[in-house]
């Protein structure tokens, strides 16, 4: 065991994977000489060279589009989208090309690429650099979607993503890069597509992913001091979605809260709440509650920014209301 940051775990995953698989190339804005806008690819160019750490012009559609073509012809590209907000620039190449190529062409070929990006709030980055757009991705069949919350998962989910036959969108959380945890990178990883039960309690199930897992665990600790024991499920991947684990715990406990940083309407939280309501109906003692981002753009002001997305205190407050 050693203490490591989320950022360093990601870099280690890239470094290890690139050593094992020579077909991997990283392409994106500032991934090479600069080392990545958030430092994830720092110094990788020194080990793997500019042929594999490919600095691109600021051309998001062509970055993703070129990764699609490279993936179809023998490389395993990692295309980095500096901010998930830039999906607006490149959604055609992701949703109409990468996601549909295997299907449209009758299974002849896949697109084994990883789109690495980061999203979420926490850095006063404003409305165009702080969104949680995983709902767009989850709404597009053909794309796998991984969102690590822990440092261990940052490493293992990225390594696993780099072995998948289909395009994986890998969304990091910008507020987690400096988070440090004890990790054992040599340990056996959880299977791909399996949720992790981070905490088990009999009063309430909190289903979430990415940074909100950290908030939910903090909230659960506060709640425990008041005698409320929550189960916290970290979904880890939203596609595939491990609903069996969710069902099992919701049926056991009877109360469910879903937490997502994305806006509430038509989002990931909406999908999860609908599924729990449909499939666990007879076990629910009360409606599923969604704790999600406000249906508004993100502000630069720290007060407005943090106030517009779920937080430890909001999760704890809602949990208490649900149990009162």
């Amino acid at each position: 065991m050693a203490a490591m940051t989320y950022r360093d775990a990601l870099r280690q995953a890239l470094d290890d994977a690139m050593k094992e698989d020579q077909s991997i190339v990283v392409m994106g804005e500032e991934v090479g000489r600069y080392g990545g806008a958030y430092g994830v690819t720092k110094d990788l160019i020194k080990t793997h060279g500019p042929e594999r750490l490919i600095d691109t012009p600021i051309s998001e559609p062509a970055i993703i589009g070129a990764a699609v073509g490279a993936a179809m012809t023998g490389l395993r590209p990692i295309a980095e989208l500096m901010y998930i907000d830039f999906l607006g620039m490149t959604m055609d190449q992701l949703a109409n090309q990468a996601a549909k190529i295997r299907y449209m062409f009758g299974g002849q070929i896949g697109v084994p690429m990883v789109l690495r990006t980061q999203g979420g709030t926490g850095r006063s980055a404003g409305a165009q650099h702080s969104q949680s757009l995983e709902g767009w991705v989850m709404h597009t069949p053909g794309l796998r979607l991984a969102m690590p919350a822990t440092v261990q998962d940052a490493y293992h989910l990225l390594r696993q993503s780099l072995t998948k036959p289909d395009p994986v969108v890998f969304i990091e959380h910008k507020a987690l890069y400096t988070r440090k945890e004890e990790v054992d990178l040599t340990s056996e990883p959880l299977p791909w597509g399996k949720a992790a039960v981070r905490r088990e309690g009999g009063d309430l199930v909190i289903v979430t992913y990415s940074r909100q897992v950290i908030y939910a665990l903090e909230a659960a600790q506060k709640l425990a001091a008041k005698g409320i024991e929550a189960t916290v499920i970290d979904l880890r991947t939203l596609n595939p979605l491990d609903f069996d684990t969710v069902r099992q715990h919701v049926e056991r406990v009877g109360k469910a809260m879903v937490v997502s940083e994305g806006v509430m309407t038509s989002g990931v939280a909406a999908e999860l709440a609908a599924r729990i309501s449909e499939e666990c109906f007879d076990f629910l003692e009360q409606p599923v509650v969604r704790v999600a981002g406000e249906d508004i753009p993100i502000s630069v002001s720290q007060e407005l920014e943090s106030g517009s997305v779920p937080s430890t205190s909001l999760i704890a407050e809602v949990a208490e209301k649900m149990l009162s």
Partner: peptide
């Protein structure tokens, strides 16, 4: 069926060709 949609794929295929 997207006008221009298939164009950047040849850039990627070109990268593969060169690297491999």
């Amino acid at each position: 069926a997207i006008v221009g949609g298939g164009i950047p794929a040849v850039v990627g295929a070109g990268l593969s060709s060169k690297r491999l």
